[in-house]
Design a protein around this nucleic acid. Structure first.
Lengths: 213, 213
DNA sequence: GTCTATATCACGATAGAC
DNA sequence: GTCTATCGTGATATAGAC
């Protein structure tokens, strides 16, 4: 019999429950990844729960043990992308000019879309909106991002970088709209430009406009 | 018995067939109007053929005597809006500066969307794209509009009005994208602006950019 | 060409065994 | 929690009488 003193160190907390918890989270993470990808590729209405289950490799009924509805699946994907956005904001050097920060945010948003990782939801679907607006994680994340961008927008307007004649809310929505700008896909479809060129062009039209400077 | 000489003048061509033809076209016109409105309100996937039939006031089976599929209904609505666009282009004073003409086109496009008359289609639906790309009236209309706008774009770039560093195709797509710009609806949803203010703001960001001039 | 009635099917969601 | 099998619903499209 082996002495108990040779046993590997045992954590004070039994690992079994923690392990199952990790597996549970990993499974949900795989689900959200599939949902995110399918939402980016086909949109909410065209995405089917069967496709999600097939991509994850589990049965559809198992999906519903994790998320109670298709709307909640989409909401989870939106929470994740919102978390990604907040992490990106955290990574920025806030000593830079607010206008540069906003430009980087737009660039990041468009790169996520071009990478096929930006979920796209219809803005008119009522049941989806109901789930989203009652999802605290999503609403909190959206407000956090909006507050931080709003701060930079007003600072950039005060410094003369952003047109002060524009209401800040209009600037904010214009930046948000880059996440679903169809121009990116159109330009990609021509096959004439690579992703970096596309982003640079749309960044140019977004911040400098179509007219000659 | 009344003399035949007192009869009302009779057209050389019997009107009966022409009348039925007019009724037929009027009915199809009503169908397309309903489709156009519903496409603008709910989008292609959420619009149901039952709704279209109900709004027109006819049975669903009658709809399918006029249009063979839901996709063809949407295509007909796209053809009509394309015809409206071409009529608007015809109405413009072509002696004006090309940049002004392009601005007017963007303004018209956004006003149509704000009026709830701009049908919105998904760009990824394959069956819909198949019907659209085989619809000669639609393809011809789209090419005609693109050609005319493309001419003005290159002229405006030659004259220094539009940034010559931008590929004309990027400028064209940026203008097209105003037809489905979600910023219009977002700003309208705030309740803080009227339609004219919204259009002016988005026109400003589109042509002059977010940055201060 | 218009109608009523129905075929057909895809999809979201659930039941129940393990 | 995962599975197989199924339900219920709503949608496109069609049959067939008039």
């Amino acid at each position: 019999m082996v002495s108990t003193t040779t046993a590997a160190p045992v954590p004070a907390v039994p690992p079994k429950r923690s392990f199952r918890e990790k597996m549970h989270l990993a499974r949900e993470d795989a689900i959200i990844s599939a949902v995110n990808r399918l939402l980016a590729e086909k949109g909410f209405e065209s995405m089917t729960v069967d496709e999600v289950a097939a991509e994850v490799g589990i049965a559809k009924a198992s999906l519903y043990k994790h998320f109670p509805s298709k709307e909640d699946l989409a909401a989870a994907a939106m929470v994740r992308v919102m978390d990604r956005a907040r992490a990106f904001l955290d990574s920025l050097d806030v000593t830079r000019a607010p206008l540069d920060l906003l430009r980087e945010v737009a660039r990041w948003t468009m790169s996520v879309q071009l990478a096929g990782e930006m979920p796209s939801l219809p803005s008119e679907n009522s049941t989806l909106r109901a789930v989203l607006t009652t999802n605290k994680a999503y609403v909190d994340g959206l407000m956090d991002v909006s507050d931080r961008l709003g701060e930079w927008i007003t600072q950039a307007q005060a410094q003369g970088g952003i047109n002060p004649a524009l209401p800040p809310i209009a600037v904010l929505y214009t930046l948000y709209a880059r996440a679903c700008d169809p121009v990116l896909g159109f330009l990609k479809g021509t096959g004439q430009f690579n992703d970096e060129q596309i982003i640079d062009m749309v960044l140019s039209t977004c911040f400098d406009g179509l007219c000659t400077r």
